[in-house]
């Protein structure tokens, strides 16, 4: 939206990502989840403003601890992107350079990040990219192989934290499953993964924990097993999202998400919520993993 209005795309997002786990950040498109990812990488456009902290490191005692939101562009580009955070992009076809082979792109990234002049095969191997396809150009690759090539590039710097922004958009179900399984393998090898997605099935397949975002706020953070299985989500919005799946009730949440520039006062979900009551006129804080005045606590 044009104009001079300031729009809060993400508000009060607080979460902790533990080493070696996968957190899936889920929500409808336009809920602010990609803005959050860009903020973490310092890739927000020039007219964006941020408040708060995003600490990268193992704890307050960690000397290398870095506030991503306060870091300058030089620090981010020299020590963070690729080295401490690897980005797995939304559309690999657009992320890869079309005029160069996968090998030459891997070689350049290797030299840049590790100083090594070889090791393309090993780097490709880590993302299960077939070595005999290294000399191909991106347009000669299928969607799945292009995704693996992009993943291989993201893994080159051996960044402990991986950030995947909608890595399965536009892929077929089978390919979605293969892609998330490969990402899961990286987590099992010790990488930490923040996956941003609107694909609930993909999130259910890969995540240890789930954060649900609605209208720029995190409304629920839960253990993935409990969230997708029993007892299920506690926030009415999260429950509605799962119920909309064709393998479940296949019933939509009534209404549409509000616009970030025109949020209702109080709980942003209240206008669509079956449990809305007077208390919902105030914004519920995120407490005990859920931001709702009437969280579901049992199977009723």
């Amino acid at each position: 939206m044009r104009g001079d209005r300031a729009i809060a795309a993400v508000t009060d997002a607080t979460f902790r990502l533990h080493r070696g786990e996968c957190l899936a950040l889920i929500g409808e498109s336009g809920c602010g989840k990609s803005v959050l990812a860009s903020a973490l990488l310092g890739l927000l456009p020039g007219n964006a403003r941020t408040e708060g902290h995003a600490w990268l490191g193992s704890g307050e005692a960690d000397e290398a601890r870095l506030d991503l939101l306060a870091a300058d562009e030089r620090t981010l580009s020299r020590t963070v992107r690729g080295r401490r955070i690897g980005l797995i992009p939304q559309s690999p076809a657009a992320h890869l350079t079309p005029v160069r082979t996968v090998r030459s792109q891997l070689r350049e990234t290797l030299r840049e990040l590790t100083g090594r002049r070889d090791g393309e095969e090993a780097a490709a191997e880590r993302a299960a990219f077939p070595a005999d396809h290294l000399d191909r150009h991106p347009h000669q690759l299928s969607g799945g192989l292009a995704q693996r090539a992009a993943t291989a590039l993201a893994l080159v710097g051996d960044a402990p934290l991986l950030l995947a922004d909608e890595p399965t958009t536009g892929l077929d179900r089978e390919l979605v499953d293969r892609t998330v399984d490969e990402l899961r393998r990286q987590v099992d090898r010790g990488h930490t993964l923040l996956m941003i997605t609107h694909d609930l099935a993909a999130a259910g397949r890969i995540a240890d924990r789930v954060a649900v975002m609605y209208a720029g706020r995190i409304v629920e953070i839960a253990d993935a097993e409990a969230f997708f299985g029993e007892p299920g989500p506690r926030h009415p919005y999260a429950r509605g999202l799962l119920d909309a799946l064709p393998e479940r009730a296949f019933t939509p949440i009534p209404g549409m998400p509000p616009e970030l520039g025109d949020l209702p006062a109080g709980c942003a979900f209240a206008p669509r919520c079956p449990r809305a009551a007077d208390a919902c006129a105030t914004v519920p804080p995120l407490a005990d993993g859920v931001a709702c005045h009437h969280p579901r606590s049992d199977r009723a």
Partner: peptide, 9 residues
């Protein structure tokens, strides 16, 4: 408030 990249003049 941290300015990530002040808008270039």
């Amino acid at each position: 408030m941290a300015d990530l990249a002040p808008p270039a003049r």
